[in-house]
């Protein structure tokens, strides 16, 4: 068994009486695509915010590459390679696609207290940025302002920005949210092509995508991981079936897929 890239033990987060993350344990292995599924309100987005350092955990421990990162602020986590993307597209709308990605490239090239040289004329920024755009299929749209990209393209840009930071673990918060079938297929193919190069924690409601991409799946219910296993094992798990069927009527669709 490969060592876990990230090891979460006993993680807790409450909002008032609501336990969004409840004594959660989770290991993600180097190189895998690990999907996190669960009914709405299971605490998936809270967990991503905790892992990205946006929300302070009440208790528990997060180890990334055997280093305790539980109290680290987000920029320092990004520097270590722990990077999130956003469910609601979060790009710099007035910047060109290239500038969006160049800014992410810039973040990993040391401090930005450089006051003179034009950033967008600097090949140290623009060349890696172009490569990232090409990787996600936006090579031809480099000069287009982000606000004028289609919704699907903005989602691609979102991923390009996360890639540009040089992530070891990508926390993908619903990368397919709000997308049509065709656009989804583009992203699924893209994520598949990144397999092995980046470890991913994939949060997604699209079960076709989850079951086709994931090496392992964890099921989150009321802030706890009730099961973790291969897609096949998860399909057969009685706890999972009960939890899901108890919560959402339509959830049956993937058990019989």
């Amino acid at each position: 068994m490969t060592r876990p890239l990230i090891k979460v033990t006993g993680l807790c987060k409450s909002f008032g009486a609501l336990r969004a993350t409840d004594n959660l344990d989770l290991d993600i292995r180097e190189g895998e695509i690990h999907a996190l599924i669960g009914p709405n309100g299971a605490g998936k987005s809270t967990l991503v915010a905790q892992l990205a350092g946006e929300l302070r955990s009440d208790a528990g421990r997060v180890e990334f590459q055997c280093r305790d990162v539980t109290a680290l602020p987000p920029p320092e986590r990004v520097a270590l390679g722990l990077v999130r993307s956003f469910q609601i597209t979060s790009v710099f709308r007035e910047f060109s696609a290239l500038a969006n990605v160049a800014l992410a490239v810039q973040a990993r090239q040391g401090h930005s207290f450089r006051f003179w040289r034009g950033a967008l004329a600097d090949p140290l920024l623009t060349e890696p940025a172009r490569r990232c755009l090409e990787q996600v299929g936006l090579g031809a749209r480099a000069e287009t302002p982000a606000a004028r990209l289609s919704y699907g393209e903005q989602r691609q840009l979102e991923i390009a920005m996360a890639l540009a930071t040089g992530p070891k673990l990508l926390l993908l918060d619903e990368p397919l949210a709000g997308m049509g079938r065709e656009d989804s297929a583009v992203i699924v193919e893209l994520l598949g092509s990144l397999r092995g190069r980046h470890t991913m924690l994939l949060i997604e409601h699209d079960m076709d995508a989850v079951f086709s991409l994931a090496d392992r799946i964890s099921v989150l219910v009321y802030g706890r991981a009730v099961a973790t296993g291969t897609p096949d094992a998860i399909r057969r798990d009685p706890d999972v079936q009960r939890a899901y069927l108890g919560e959402e009527a339509h959830a049956g669709e993937f058990f019989h897929a």
């Binding site: 946006e54 987000p74 990004v78 520097a79 979060s90 710099f92 910047f95 800014l103 992410a104």
Partner: peptide
């Protein structure tokens, strides 16, 4: 660029590492 990025979308800036 960092200054303008932080104006446009501070949360994103933090999560790409600034």
């Amino acid at each position: 660029m960092v200054l303008q990025g932080a104006k446009a979308n501070e949360r994103r800036m933090v999560h790409i590492g600034f």
